[in-house]
């Protein structure tokens, strides 16, 4: 099993998070805390790169739902970048694919705000 990792960079006032590994009920709090820290810094424009996420459960999807709501309430948004086939499958089952902004390359993600 691959280690769960989150890395962060900033570009033009947008926070980019790259998530890797298994995003489940054991790891979701790490992502939640990272996003909370970004919001507390006053940044509400967020790109989450899911290209390294091997697996997501509803706990992981829930973090993204919460982040979408809070960012939009504060004039920002969340864009999901390059989700893996497994993530897309779960998003399809949950009916989230049509609700989230989902793009496949970084430039499109940064241009989505």
């Amino acid at each position: 099993m691959s280690e769960f990792k989150i890395s962060r960079e900033n570009a033009n006032g947008i926070a980019l998070l790259r998530v890797e590994g298994f995003l489940d009920a054991h790891t979701f709090e790490q992502l939640e805390e990272t996003i909370r820290g970004i919001f507390e810094s006053g940044c509400f424009k967020l790109v989450v790169d899911l290209g390294g996420v091997d697996y997501i459960s509803s706990a992981g999807a829930g973090v993204l739902i919460g982040a979408r709501s809070e960012s939009q309430e504060n004039g920002g948004d969340i864009v999901l970048l390059n989700p893996t086939e497994g993530v897309r499958e779960v998003f399809d089952l949950l009916g989230l694919t049509q609700i989230f902004k989902i793009v496949n390359d970084r430039s499109a993600a940064l241009a989505a705000f």
Binding site: S57, S58, A59, A61, G62, V63, I65, G66, R68, S69, E70, E73, V90, L93, L94, G95, L96, I99
Partner: peptide, 22 residues
């Protein structure tokens, strides 16, 4: 209702929904 659920920013309550789908 997923649209309402997401609209309210509710993070929990989707696990049983997924199980029923599968």
């Amino acid at each position: 209702d997923i649209a309402t659920h997401v609209g309210k920013g509710q993070k929990h309550g989707l696990g049983i929904f997924l199980i029923r789908q599968i």
